[in-house]
Nucleic acid binder design. Structure first.
Length: 426
RNA sequence: GCCGCCAUCGUCUAGUGGCCUAGGACAUCGGAUUCUCAUUCCGAAAAUCACGGGUUCAAAUCCCGUUGGCGGUACCA
């Protein structure tokens, strides 16, 4: 029976490295028709952050990494650890000193283990190991005791955790044995590094998952990208749904080499997911994302125009602002255009627009101004760019004619007039 | 310091003794398409496979050593 768990400590907001640990544990459980649980390791009362647990739960939910049983909170089961610590004293493998209970490390021999990652054998000489604390003087267990007790009781197998735990593996194996428990299999995941090549951690200042969410990243893109940080699916397909990952994932294919977290590729992948989405779906996602946006109920027609142009949901805002708000004209923007007799041309454009039959059809609109540019001997692209600036105040927008159609005839005329007035004023 | 893990393009990686004058993806740089920006499509550049020694007819792939990076060395997790 496969049972895995994600066991974060609530010492800060859930960070991106935790996503991969949780994801791999989740994949192993789902693939093996096993269970995936959540355990909160809150035995360090000094570093405890009250909001952290909620943050972890919310992010797991957002990511779609649903756990099965009740959440296990270590601080609620202190007596349990105390009982086992006492048992170890009675077995004479532990002793009390200055209010804490210490594990007596044997000083001879070796502890070996085959790690599931890379199927490598790791060995530790006991001569180099020191006694360690099982139960702190405040009555809380250390990670070492809590891990052994909980993962035994939860029947966790395999134990999936970060590589930073590998060094303390002999402590754990010996504790399992001293208590008469079966030692589970271990998978020590290679570390995820920052661009400075140091371990990515909250103490190191790694970004929290909720920040990625606020930045407009999609949960499926985050999951997909994180999965690839240390694992390659059998064929070279890179875009994988959670279901596909479950089908293909195998711990034996996980690399033993640390990987650098590269946000550029995450961004690309996020854009890839956005582009593959239907406009309806993207509209829905954007509306959920833009909770405070005053015009979020009117975005649907804009979505197809920006789908190929945004990498993150948040990119929607700067790209479409001009649609909902009056542009701020800047003479410098006009000056940078390839044509300079702005006013004259705009007046002609305005004349043309006023005579055009409503509603303006994009094809007709385009044809009309292509003809006008020929007539005026202005390059078509340059004229379009002038219209763009007059209508939006910007040199970069979604396709012009479609944008104008969304703006409406009246609003467009108004803006062209305003831009003419603006140019007269300066 | 000691212990442990790791070592292929800038980054993620393919590669498990011959198919590797090392393949893909992101990023970068060109070009095509185009009303801007993107998208899309082509193309280029980019790794003496960390280094040194073995083993072998043959090594990125196996062995040893060195170097480097990282992790651990807490009554933190």
């Amino acid at each position: 029976m496969i049972k895995t768990r994600f066991a974060p400590s609530p010492t800060g907001m859930m960070h991106i490295g935790g996503v991969r640990t949780a994801l791999y544990a989740y994949l192993v459980a789902r693939k093996g028709n096993g269970t995936f649980d959540l355990r909160i390791e809150d035995t360090d009362r000094n570093r405890f952050v009250p909001e952290a647990q909620k943050d972890i739960e919310a992010n797991l939910k957002w990511l779609g990494l649903n756990f099965d049983g009740e959440i296990i909170v270590q601080s609620e089961r202190k007596e349990l650890y105390q009982k086992y610590a006492q048992e170890l004293i009675e077995k004479d493998v532990a002793y009390r000193q200055e209010g804490a209970i210490w594990f007596k490390m044997p000083k001879e021999g070796q502890v070996k283990s085959i790690d599931l990652i890379g199927e490598r054998e790791v060995a530790f000489n006991l001569a180099e190991q020191k006694d360690f604390v099982l139960l702190k003087s405040d009555g809380f267990p250390t990670y070492h005791l809590a891990h052994v007790v909980d993962d035994h009781l939860m029947e966790t197998n395999p134990v999936i955790r970060g590589d930073e735990w590998l060094s303390s593996l002999p402590k754990h194996i010996l504790t399992f044995k001293a208590l008469g428990f079966d030692v589970p299999q271990y998978a020590h995941l290679p570390l995820i590094l920052g661009t400075d090549r140091a371990k990515l951690s909250k103490r190191h200042g790694a970004k929290g998952v909720s920040e990625f969410r606020k930045d407009g990243y999609l949960p499926e893109a985050i999951l997909n990208y994180m999965a690839l940080l240390g694992w390659t699916p059998p064929d070279d397909k890179e875009i994988l749904s959670l279901e596909e990952m479950i089908a293909l994932f195998d711990l034996k294919d996980v690399h033993s080499t640390p990987a650098v977290f590269d946000i550029t590729k995450l961004e690309w992948m996020n854009g890839e997911y956005i582009r593959q989405m239907s406009s309806e779906e993207l509209t829905k996602r954007l509306q959920e994302f833009l909770v405070d946006h005053p015009n979020k109920d009117r975005i649907a027609p804009v979505v197809p125009l920006i789908k190929d142009r945004i990498k993150k949901l948040s990119d929607f805002i700067p790209l479409t602002d001009f649609i909902w708000e009056k542009p701020e004209y800047d003479i410098e923007v006009f000056k940078k255009l390839k044509i300079q007799n702005h006013q004259e041309i705009l007046e002609k454009i305005l004349e043309k627009m006023e005579t055009m039959k409503k509603p303006w059809k994009t094809e007709v609109f385009e044809k009309t101004f292509r003809d006008l540019s020929d007539e005026m001997q202005v390059k078509t692209g340059n004229m379009f760019q002038l219209i763009r600036v007059a209508v939006s105040g910007q040199t970069v927008t979604p396709p012009l004619f479609e944008s104008i159609q969304i703006l409406g005839e009246e609003e467009t005329l108004k803006r062209i007039k305003e831009s003419v007035e603006f140019l007269q004023a300066v």
